[in-house]
Design a protein around this nucleic acid. Sequence first.
DNA 1: CGTACCCGACCGAACGGTCGGTCGGGAGAA
DNA 2: TTCTCCCGACCGACCGTTCGGTCGGGTACG
Lengths: 199, 199
Amino acid sequence: MRNTLALDDVVDIALIVFLEQGYDGTSMADLSAAAGITKSSLYHHVSSKEELLRLGIDRALSAQKAMLDEEEATDRTPSERLRTVTRRTCMLIVSLIPETAVLVRARGRTETEQWAIRERRLLDDRLAKLIAHSWAYEGRSFDSSAPAVAARLVFGMLSSVVDWYRPGHGPFDAELLAELADQILFDAALAGDARSQTV
Amino acid sequence: MRNTLALDDVVDIALIVFLEQGYDGTSMADLSAAAGITKSSLYHHVSSKEELLRLGIDRALSAQKAMLDEEEATDRTPSERLRTVTRRTCMLIVSLIPETAVLVRARGRTETEQWAIRERRLLDDRLAKLIAHSWAYEGRSFDSSAPAVAARLVFGMLSSVVDWYRPGHGPFDAELLAELADQILFDAALAGDARSQTV
DNA sequence: CGTACCCGACCGAACGGTCGGTCGGGAGAA
DNA sequence: TTCTCCCGACCGACCGTTCGGTCGGGTACG
């Protein structure tokens, strides 16, 4: 077997460059240089720059959808489900940072990016539903549009880690990050009156 | 007086296009079309595309810094200061959505973007310090790196509104949005046991 | 008449993508 | 084992287009 490049390897490399330079800020020449092959060889593996974006986005979407499918099928209480989902979302984002970055940074200028935005909206809706169920279960009264806004804020907080967190490059590991995010969202850790836990 | 364009008008227009298409995804031809003048006329007002980015980023930075300066000078308790700052940050972001967007989306590929990242880090540090002081004031024990991580998560949550919130385009106004963000961060509204407030 | 504002025409460079062709390793037949 | 054929991986050269930016000149207001 020769030391050759598979499609997944090319996508891996492209996503890392996209993470650092942005999709629009990355040229096919940049990608070919990062992969150690020429630009024309790159086109042997993919048909277009946009296909690389699509494959990357699909990775993030598939993982998130699979996690939600699995969690929604459990028989936990709505509140437990919500907390588990946010925690697993954090862990999942950390494990798929370049993939999540291209997903959340899509602005909708091409057909692929519009598809990404539509799919993201579906994920938002599923999280909003989890929040609404949890609040209703806890007997809380709320405005009908509040769960959707809360869902976007939560996803926004968790997704923002792709802009600065790099696993293994600091004192904080993924579990500690998820723990802190969890305490901020569910224990009001920011208010200082968390249940005497140390982060 | 002719119906003419001032520099601030050009920056306003450019920022709106940057918000929708991203900086790299926007050409000077796009901007000139949006401004209703030709590309060469655009260069009468600005010396480069990067200058438009710099002016936009500076607006967001100046506003945020001025707010922090003002708030840090008060004699409130650390916890009150933290809560006021996060709330005012939310209001400020909503009132400067295009400006905040170019600031938080800078990836560091040019000198201007690297400057933006350095300035953002200073803002992160100031918020982290507020969090650390608040936690110490409340007698909470915490890891030394936790405030910095919490600050980034909070800024991440608040900054994410630039990706979906458009004032006047929905049932939620800015105050309600800030109120909900505040309750999530400080009252654990997501857990459902908030102090019986309706959002 | 100066100056602020704006224009059409244009430039070199970089862009995404295509082309014809090279190279080495695996499979099948003798 | 050797010869032949094939195919995936790769390459240099090149395509038309778009990029950020420039230039010389026009025009209307103070």
